[in-house]
Design a protein around this nucleic acid. Structure first.
Length: 402
DNA sequence: ATACCTGGCGACTTTACAAC
DNA sequence: GTTGTAAAGTCGCCAGGTAT
């Protein structure tokens, strides 16, 4: 047995100084698992007992679980190896999506794809164990074996060791991290409220229920119906491409944000690299338009976009306005109606050009676009706060544990 | 009853090829 | 050469069976 390194974390609360003790995870908390009651007995299902299966994976990402898709009956428990675990039990998926952990918010049973640990009184706390499992996740993912389905066998968990401090310190660490998580949740709620608000405003603005007025309080002229192809220039003739450029493919644009594109030499570029970008151009993703991975291009330099995008150049109209208009559900619906292919819907540029849009006076366009851009900026700020807090938490996890 | 083992499906992507 | 479409390939996800 090699020497254990000094058993104190890098950062910790002042009032604690004891070394952390390493023990077998099995000594730290009581391990258990579960099973699937036979599906050929309908009387085992549709009961009152929440039963966690892999179909609940998505809800595990929250860190806690309070309801499940499937519920089973007492009879199902009695006639299978499924067990009801109490509230506060921590579970870990060890099969297909290895390493997800969560805390049960009420008593629940699990399928055999999960291992659970119940805290031992005086030794372990639910949330300390939960956060420890979070830190271990990359490790779990590494050691999982299997080709199509990755699995971790139980012998691994029987040998697994955990370093933990005294109960009060565990509780303090867990409470602190929980408060950071609460902050992240709060920011996420704020973001989704802003997104809902923007969606509502957009709907009212573009349906003209809500109109801006000029400085004298008078309404702007009526909106005009136009084909998109008449309001903007679609796929303008590109000048000769430069020898090297930054290539914007479909992957580079997510939710209006451009990730750093790859630099390319023209001879190595894929045949789809055709659209030479100008500042102010708007890119519209022509495949899977419901993803709304469109871009307001504002950069300087030589950028070339994939022909998977339609390149829209707003001549007399506000490109910011056009960008916002392309994001409306109404526009997306008209595009989807014209798409071919079910799993991979795509529209061509001439059908895109035929779509009818309502266009206001340029001044009103600018007002609408500015208002919506301001909201976009706010949403983007909250998104960044979320990322920062998550990074902060990641750092904490590394420093506060041994 | 427990521990541990495996195969298939569908959604999504990429590639290939044919039509323009 | 460009674009649309079909075919092939990949990946993530899913539930239950079998040996002891």
């Amino acid at each position: 047995m090699s020497m254990e390194k000094t058993m104190v974390p890098q950062s910790r609360f002042r009032e604690f100084s004891d070394e952390w003790a390493t023990s077998l995870l099995d000594d730290y908390a009581t391990r258990g698992s579960g099973h699937t009651p036979s599906k050929s007995h309908p009387e085992y299902y549709d009961g009152d007992i929440p039963w966690i299966s892999l179909t609940d994976s998505k809800s595990l990402d929250k860190g806690f679980i309070d309801s499940t898709k499937t519920k089973i009956t007492d009879l199902g428990i009695k006639n299978s190896s499924a067990v009801v675990h109490p509230k506060g039990t921590v579970l870990l998926s060890r099969d297909a999506g290895v390493g997800k952990s969560a805390v049960m918010q009420n008593s629940m049973a699990v399928s055999q794809h999960f291992i659970v640990w119940k805290p031992k009184s005086g030794v372990s706390t639910t949330w300390f164990l939960y956060y420890w499992l979070q830190i271990m996740k990359p490790h779990f993912e590494r050691i999982a074996v299997g080709s199509t389905i990755k699995t971790i066998g139980l012998p691994f968990f029987k040998k697994l060791k955990i370093a933990a401090p005294t109960l009060p310190e565990q509780e303090k660490i867990a409470a602190f991290l929980t408060s950071v998580d609460a902050r992240i949740e709060q920011l996420k709620r704020k973001k989704s409220l802003l997104q809902d608000y923007k969606k509502g405003v957009m709907q009212r603005l573009f349906s003209q229920q809500l109109r801006f007025k000029d400085q004298n309080g008078n309404p702007y002229p009526d909106w005009q119906e136009k084909k998109l192809g008449d309001a903007v220039e679609i796929n303008p003739k590109s000048a000769l491409l430069p020898d090297t450029f930054l290539y914007i493919d479909l992957e580079s644009v997510n939710d209006g944000v451009l990730s750093p594109p790859r630099e390319m030499i023209i001879s190595d570029a894929p045949s789809r690299a055709q659209r030479l970008m100008q500042k102010g151009d708007v890119l519209y993703q022509m495949v899977r338009p419901y993803q709304k991975n469109n871009l307001q291009f504002q950069n300087d330099g030589d950028y070339v976009a994939s022909t998977g995008f339609a390149q829209l150049r707003a001549s007399n109209n506000s490109s910011d306005f056009i960008y916002q208009l392309l994001l409306t559900d109404r526009f997306t619906d008209s595009v989807l109606k014209r798409c071919t292919g079910t799993s991979y819907p795509a529209i061509n540029s001439s059908d895109l050009a035929d779509i009818l849009i309502q266009v206001p006076h340029p001044t009103e366009q600018t007002k609408i676009a500015n208002f919506l851009s301001t909201l976009d900026t706010k949403i983007e700020q909250v998104t960044q706060q979320i990322t920062q807090t998550q990074t902060f938490k990641k750092g904490l996890l590394q420093q506060m544990f041994v």
